[in-house]
């Protein structure tokens, strides 16, 4: 008798548990942001590229040593593979940058549009080169497609670094705007709470300091934007130019961090 009851109870509780599980399963899953998916795709394509590159380097070495038709056939095959993988990696990378630019909050619309246009141009060129590689099946044409990439590599990296610079500037601009809004909110709530004269004076000093901090950040961002404007459209946006902008933004970012701690103190 007892056994039967125990079995009944077990079945009962399991069915209750099952109900809960099915309830949980019917809830819609949270979709990861498109940008994160794009980044993952880029990382995966880079892994594939590294693998193919390794195979190509080995087969090239073998061809250089053996100088046979079989080894030539192999190196041609691996050359095509690695060049296609390189194009796929760049496609994934520029798509991720394009999504990042499109999702920017603090950037000027014209700058966003121009940068997006540059990225689209790069993607079209990469697709064109990829199609050429697809139709290439011998040593000469494959070396030619490789040279084509090398010719365009500077332009590609220039578009990439200018995009990265714009992303960095815009992120600081967006955070500074938010700091301004939060400061306003805190100041209003201080006034509404009608504190004593001493506390109000103290909060007022804090507010003034925060306002000065915001101004310093804005100046730093303005300087970085000028640097960005000076380089983009005129010259190649090198890694060095990008590093210069990062350095300029560094001062503003330090102030932004300070502003964050100020606003937290003021809100207390």
């Amino acid at each position: 008798m007892k056994k039967r009851y125990i079995i009944f109870l077990i079945i009962l509780f399991y069915s209750a548990g099952f109900l809960r599980i099915t309830q949980a399963q019917t809830e819609p899953p949270i979709a990861p942001p498109q940008l994160e998916i794009s980044k993952q795709q880029y990382i995966q394509s880079l892994d594939v590229y590294r693998e193919k590159e390794q195979k190509f380097l080995i087969s090239r070495e073998q061809y250089n040593q053996l100088q046979t038709l079989a080894s030539l056939e192999e190196v041609v095959r691996t050359s095509k593979d690695v060049q296609l993988a390189r194009m796929d990696t760049l496609t994934a990378y520029f798509n991720t940058l394009l999504l990042s630019i499109q999702n920017l909050k603090g950037a000027e619309i014209t700058k966003k549009a121009n940068q997006g246009q540059l990225l689209q141009t790069a993607l079209v060129e990469i697709e064109r080169q990829r199609n050429t590689i697809l139709t290439s099946n011998d040593r000469v044409t494959l070396d030619k497609t490789s040279a084509n990439y090398d010719d365009k590599q500077g332009a590609f990296s220039s578009i990439a670094y200018s995009s990265l610079a714009l992303i960095k500037i815009s992120n600081i601009q967006s955070a500074t705007d938010q700091l301004g809004v939060l400061t306003g909110e805190v100041y209003t709530s201080i006034q509404e709470s009608s504190p004593s004269a001493t506390i109000f004076a103290e909060k007022q000093r804090g507010y003034d300091e925060l306002a000065r901090t915001i101004e310093t950040i804005k100046m730093s961002t303005k300087k970085a934007t000028q640097q960005y404007d000076n380089i983009s459209g005129r010259d190649l946006f090198t890694q060095g130019a990008y590093a210069q902008i990062v350095e300029t933004l560094g001062t503003g970012y330090a102030k932004l961090k300070q502003g964050e701690s100020f606003i937290q103190e003021l809100a207390q």
């Binding site: 880029y42 060049q83 760049l90």
Partner: peptide, 20 residues
């Protein structure tokens, strides 16, 4: 996210010398 020193999307480290 605004930290300018952090770059989670550096230019892909692809080889420019892929000649047979």
């Amino acid at each position: 996210r605004a930290d300018p020193t952090v770059n989670d999307l550096p230019y892909p480290p692809v080889n420019t010398n892929l000649y047979i």
